[in-house]
Simulated assay, not measured.
Amino acid sequence: MTAHRITADGAHFAFTDRWGGVSAVPYDSLNLGGAVGDEPAAVAANRERAAGSLGRDPARVVWMNQVHGSEVAVVDRPWGDGPVPAVDALVTDRAELTLAVLTADCLPVLLADPVAGVAAAAHAGRPGLVAGVVPAAVAAMTGLGAEPARISAVFGPAVCGKCYEVPEALRAEVAAVVPEAYAETSWGTPAVDIAAGVRAQLARAGVPAAGGPGICTLESADHFSYRRDRTTGRLAGYVWLDGRP
Rank of each mutant, 00 (worst) to 15 (best):
W240F: 12
A136C: 08
P148W: 14
S152T: 15
H223F: 13
E219A: 13
W63N: 04
V22P: 00
A191D: 08
V36S: 02
A149N: 11
A11C: 03
Y226C: 07
V22N: 00
G214N: 06
R126E: 15
G211Y: 04
D9N: 09
A200W: 06
R244S: 12
A95S: 15
R244I: 09
S29D: 14
V239T: 04
G55M: 08
P78D: 12
V109Q: 06
W79N: 07
L32G: 00
A14S: 08
A8V: 12
T98H: 05
E39V: 06
W63A: 05
A124I: 08
A149Q: 15
E71K: 14
A131R: 14
Y164T: 15
L144N: 09
T2M: 15
A210K: 01
E180F: 13
N31F: 02
V109R: 05
P26E: 03
L129I: 09
A209T: 07
D105L: 08
C160V: 13
L129D: 05
V101T: 05
A172H: 13
P208F: 05
D193S: 11
S186W: 15
G237D: 09
A183C: 12
T232L: 09
R227V: 15
G80P: 07
G37S: 01
R56N: 02
V198A: 03
D229K: 04
E219F: 06
E180W: 14
G55P: 05
G37E: 00
R94G: 03
V166Y: 14
V198P: 02
A124V: 09
N46F: 00
F15N: 01
D57L: 01
A169D: 15
A205L: 01
G188I: 10
A136W: 10
R227Y: 14
P245H: 07
A210T: 02
A210G: 01
S23R: 01
D81F: 10
D229N: 10
A42Q: 07
L30C: 02
G132T: 09
F155K: 12
E180P: 08
N46H: 00
T189H: 12
P40K: 01
N31H: 05
A112C: 03
G33W: 00
E168M: 14
V138N: 04
S152N: 10
V134T: 14
L110F: 02
E48G: 02
I151M: 13
R199S: 13
L241M: 05
Y182T: 11
L144Y: 11
A158S: 15
G125I: 12
S29Q: 09
P157Y: 13
A116T: 02
A8P: 00
G21K: 00
L30F: 03
P179L: 15
D113S: 05
A89Y: 01
A73S: 10
L107Q: 01
T231E: 13
P108K: 00
R230Q: 13
V109L: 09
G237S: 05
A200R: 08
P148A: 11
V72L: 06
G161A: 10
D76W: 09
M1S: 10
F224Y: 15
F13A: 02
Y226A: 08
C106E: 13
G206F: 06
T232F: 10
R234V: 03
A122G: 06
D222S: 11
P83M: 08
G55Q: 04
